[in-house]
Design a protein around this nucleic acid. Structure first.
Lengths: 214, 214
DNA sequence: AAAACTTTGTTACTTGCGGTAACGAGAGTC
DNA sequence: GACTCTCGTTACCGCAAGTAACAAAGTTTT
């Protein structure tokens, strides 16, 4: 069959690609996001031009890496998000899953957050606002989908769910980032605090000015 | 007096520094965050080593630039944050101020969001979690201060206010970033949606399938 | 079987940037 | 007049991204 021949090549290429990605992963995890193409090639046991043949440029490689990890994280999150429990519980589980992931592997997380580089000259008036990590965008969209699907928001639900999706993801990310750096409390406490925030505790709290003393 | 002589030099150096920063600003605003030191030096009418004498390295220059802009933004935000109106109004005004700022000058905003680079070799086990833009950290801390100062959160208020400060800033940032890219609605609508989220509308909304508890 | 092509890999190069060393010219000081 | 101190230059180093040109293997075509 001709299919086997062609498939053989494709499979071989795919296997190679996966091997390269795994090598790249090791290097990036070891050396951080600044890892050089040379280093990655060396780890994979080959030389630079092959990497470029497979991934085009550094952006391509990093994008492929990011997609892998993002997919993995998304799978974990979806499980927490789609649980049949009550909303608050689901929210807490999702927050905890995310935080556990970044806690377990800060290097991966750190890499995912700024894949955008570029020795690029030119391209002055590119498009604005696309610097942020695609991971966050994907998470935001995913969460938006779930919200719209499961929460009754009346009219404007399309807009609201997306705003909230991105907003909540951003909240989770920023708080997680800060928490990871300072470790001011346990993960459970952080989850509680964030869930409380989403549950309107900021709106419900009283002013301090009328308080004791002063 | 000797003081005048010394002050003369210092003033001259400071003026120079400011000129250089302004030149750098123009270039960064024109060419994006990838602007080269050569380009900045050329814009300032001098050559590279002078930049390095003034700012140490590229990180130093970018940090100085970032501090300038961050200070400016913080001043605007503090005005909205310290208003004597009601809390919801204050929150909305603050959100709107931030969004208006990033809308008015996306280039600046874009630059502020990833000043961290580094051709650094070595330093393998640096510190994790410091990749995020210092702007967000400063905003988060600032907001935390205001929250703790004006909202009664009972015990744990120190922790809660900081978590919320960073969380809310992250929410604002992520939603703003997405909004700036897609422009799915007016600024006012976005502000409303985010304030609604903070006001617990997510918790208050009903489920879409079956009842709560399921 | 020999020629041609594809795949897989190499070495060696170019370009461009961050950063630095070494040197040069004015201006104030002993 | 020599000394030094700041401001400025040119010319370089090192390094990383990306590419061109070439080499050896297997596969297909004639």
């Amino acid at each position: 069959m001709e299919t086997t021949g062609r498939t053989d090549q494709e499979r071989s290429a795919d296997r190679r690609r996966r091997e390269l990605l795994e090598a790249a992963d090791r290097v990036v995890l070891r050396d951080g996001p600044g890892a050089s193409m040379n280093a990655i090639a060396a780890e994979a046991g080959i030389t630079k031009p092959i990497l470029y043949r497979h991934f085009g440029d550094k952006g391509g490689l990093y994008k492929a890496l990011a997609v892998r990890h993002t997919d993995a994280l998304l799978d974990a999150l979806r499980a927490a998000l789609d649980a049949p429990s009550e909303r608050r519980e689901r929210v807490e589980a999702t927050l905890d899953t995310y935080l556990a992931a970044i806690e377990a592997n800060p290097q991966v997380y750190r890499f995912l957050m700024h894949p955008s580089e570029g020795t690029s000259q030119g391209e002055g008036a590119f498009d604005v606002g696309l610097h942020s990590a695609p991971l966050l965008r994907r998470l935001g969209e995913e969460l938006a989908k779930v919200i719209e699907e499961r929460v009754d928001l009346g009219p404007e639900s399309a807009l609201l769910s997306r705003v909230w999706g991105h907003g909540i993801v951003g909240m989770m990310h920023a708080a997680g980032d800060w928490w990871l750096g300072e470790r001011p409390c346990s993960r459970a406490q952080l989850v509680q605090s964030l869930a409380d925030l989403l549950w309107g505790r900021l709106a419900a709290a009283g002013d301090r000015v009328g308080g004791p003393g002063f």
